[in-house]
Design a protein around this nucleic acid. Structure first.
Length: 233
DNA sequence: GCGACAG
DNA sequence: ATCTTGTCGC
């Protein structure tokens, strides 16, 4: 198996990583609506870790947005490139994710990330970062709340509540994808509007709480990690 | 200074 | 993220 290399100049410490975020943030495009829900392709990306071996496996699964059928899937394995630090998740996950995306031989369309985009301490989460360095349309769908609080939201599928910054700006939304389940947290990454990001998320979760993109990518990267770990060193 | 804190 | 069995519920 091939081990993905960490990109040249990749930050090695939190100080420099934050500086990179502050510099790249200006390149995020927030004025594009992005692809309409239910059309084209939608790609889920996710990673799994094996701390014992210092390995990280990433997966990219491309789905037909209309049928949610799998169109293509790739994986990549690399060395862990950064420790887990809240707010700096991109530096830990992106090298492997970029490897999986590079292995794709088809257009990924909209990329759905596990985590946040704009609703981040410095408004430049994992989804924003991936979008800026690839130019792809991206959104973030997180499973847990992070820094921005939100009010109550209705119990029905599609109900939402704004995630607001200190200045009152709407940075994302808590979104209920199924009746009675905990919400997911949607925020814009790059080249997609928040309305579209939420519409895509609901369309991608017809049956379960999480979007099919993240469910499929999660399962695939775990399998890839198991395969990498069970093989010889 | 002390917690909290995406995955 | 990851360590981990059974169990309550639809």
């Amino acid at each position: 198996m091939t081990i993905i290399e960490v990109p040249q100049g990749w930050p090695a410490d939190p100080e420099r990583a934050r500086a990179v975020q502050d510099e790249l943030r200006a390149r995020v495009a927030l004025d594009e609506p992005g692809p309409p829900p239910g059309t084209g392709r939608v790609t889920g990306v996710d990673v799994a870790y094996d701390d014992a071996h210092g390995l990280v496996a990433a997966a990219a699964v491309v789905l037909d947005a209309a049928t949610l059928a799998v169109v293509a899937e790739t994986t990549a394995v690399g060395r862990v490139a950064f420790p887990y630090v809240p707010g700096l998740l991109a530096f830990r996950e992106l090298p492997a994710v970029l490897g999986a995306l590079a292995a794709l031989d088809t257009d990924p369309g909209l990329v759905v990330c596990d985590g946040y985009g704009r609703a981040h301490p410095r408004r430049f989460g994992l989804a924003s970062h991936l979008g800026v360095i690839t130019g792809l349309a991206t959104i973030g769908v997180a499973k847990n709340p992070f820094v921005h609080p939100h009010g109550e939201l209705g119990p029905e599928r599609g109900d939402m509540a704004a995630l607001r910054g200190d200045d009152g700006e709407e940075l994302g939304r808590a979104l209920r994808t199924q009746r009675g389940v905990k919400p997911v947290y949607v925020s814009v990454g790059h080249r997609v509007s928040l309305d579209n990001a939420c519409a895509h998320t609901v369309a991608l979760a017809p049956r379960y709480r999480l979007p099919e993109t993240t469910r499929r990518a999660d399962r695939l990267c775990r399998d890839a990690l198991t395969a990498a770990t069970s093989g010889r060193a």
